[in-house]
Design a protein around this nucleic acid. Structure first.
Length: 103
DNA sequence: AGACTGACGGTCT
DNA sequence: GAGACCGCCAGTC
């Protein structure tokens, strides 16, 4: 069981309409405090977006994390989340109080 | 082998 | 409340 497989599994458990932070996913994947690995793991599973709802993972500030790889594709994640009923503030932030996943 | 980089988080100022 | 700094692991040069 690679570390990425654990992260992969946790992300798949995030229910529709909810979001989780990198730190939260890391903790659930038995990798406390290693949020960076979660980000890197998601970067690697880009190819399997059909199986992994990577768009439901955001940073602790409630905003979407941008990546050099995504570059102009940032709107994609926001778009997918809006489709699931998640409301964005004018600044592009998500209200974690209402949308954060509580397993 | 050593150093740099990266979808982050928590703490300090 | 916002910005700066440090630390964590894996992958690449």
């Amino acid at each position: 069981m690679s570390t990425y497989a654990a992260i992969h599994a946790v992300v798949c458990q995030i229910p529709l309409g909810k979001v989780a932070t990198y730190g939260q996913v890391a903790e659930l994947a038995h990798l406390p405090g290693q949020a960076r690995l979660v980000g890197y793991a998601l970067y690697l599973i880009q190819a399997q977006t059909d199986q992994v709802p990577w768009h439901r993972v955001i940073n602790a500030k409630g905003k979407i994390s941008y990546s050099s790889a995504r570059q102009g594709m940032d709107y994609l994640q926001r778009s997918l989340l809006e489709q699931e009923g998640i409301d964005f503030s004018p600044e592009g932030k998500i209200n974690l109080q209402n949308y954060q996943w509580h397993p």
